[in-house]
Lab assay of single mutants.
Amino acid sequence: SDEELKKRIEELVRRGNKDEARKLAENANSDEARKWWEKLEQL
């Protein structure tokens, strides 16, 4: 689900694993996940 995906992306970003988070968001084929990633990346 998008919610689970967003949690995983956020967790990866928090751990400093941005590349992994980006790949996850891009491969998810989910606009919501991509937007979430872009938002987190700004922080």
Rank of each mutant, 00 (worst) to 15 (best):
E26S: 04
K35T: 07
A33I: 15
A21S: 02
A21H: 01
A33G: 06
E4I: 08
W37T: 00
E38Q: 01
K23N: 09
Q42N: 10
A33H: 06
R15I: 14
E11Q: 05
K23D: 07
K23H: 10
E38A: 00
E10F: 01
Q42K: 13
K23R: 13
E20G: 07
N17T: 03
D19W: 00
E38D: 07
N27C: 11
W37P: 09
W36H: 13
W36L: 10
R34M: 15
A25T: 05
S1T: 12
I9M: 11
N17V: 05
L5M: 08
L24A: 04
A21N: 01
E26I: 03
K7Y: 02
A28D: 05
W37Y: 14
L40S: 04
R22W: 04
R22P: 02
N27M: 14
Q42W: 05
Q42L: 11
S30I: 05
R34E: 11
K35N: 13
S1W: 15
S1I: 14
D31C: 10
E3D: 13
N17C: 15
G16P: 00
E32M: 10
Q42T: 09
K35P: 02
W36T: 01
V13A: 04
K23F: 05
E3S: 10
R14A: 13
S1K: 12
N29G: 13
R15D: 11
L12D: 03
W36K: 02
R22H: 06
N17L: 14
R15M: 14
D19N: 08
E38H: 00
K7H: 07
R14I: 11
L40H: 03
D19A: 11
K7R: 13
S30N: 10
E32G: 07
K35L: 07
V13M: 14
A25M: 14
K7M: 08
K6R: 10
L24I: 08
E4N: 11
D2H: 11
E20T: 05
E4A: 12
D31H: 05
D31G: 05
A33F: 15
K7V: 06
E32P: 05
E3H: 11
E4R: 07
E32S: 10
E10D: 07
L24P: 01
L43D: 11
R14E: 09
R8I: 12
L43H: 08
L43M: 13
I9E: 01
D19E: 13
K7Q: 09
L40N: 01
G16N: 03
K35F: 05
S30V: 05
L24S: 03
L5S: 02
I9N: 02
E41T: 15
K39M: 13
D31Q: 06
E41V: 15
W37I: 13
W37E: 07
D2A: 11
N29M: 12
Q42S: 12
R8Y: 06
R14K: 13
L43I: 12
K6D: 02
G16M: 03
N29R: 10
K7P: 01
E10T: 06
L5A: 02
K18G: 09
K6I: 15
L5K: 02
S1R: 12
K18H: 15
S1G: 12
G16D: 03
R15Y: 01
E38N: 00
L5D: 02
K39C: 12
L24H: 02
S1D: 12
L24F: 01
K7S: 10
E10V: 06
E10A: 06
A33D: 10
A28W: 12
E11A: 05
W36Y: 13
L43G: 10
L43R: 07
E11G: 06
K35I: 11
D19T: 09
K23A: 13
R22F: 04
E11R: 01
L5C: 08
D19S: 09
E26F: 02
R22Q: 07
L24N: 01
E4L: 11
W37M: 07
E4M: 10
E3Q: 11
K39W: 15
R14T: 09
R14Y: 00
L12K: 03
E38W: 00
I9V: 04
D31S: 09
K6Y: 10
R22T: 04
A25W: 04
E32Y: 06
E38I: 00
S1C: 14
D2I: 15
K6W: 11
Q42D: 07
Q42I: 09
W36C: 08
K18W: 15
I9D: 01
K35M: 08
V13C: 11
E20P: 02
E38M: 00
K39T: 13
E20R: 04
K18V: 15
E11V: 00
K23E: 11
E10N: 05
S30K: 04
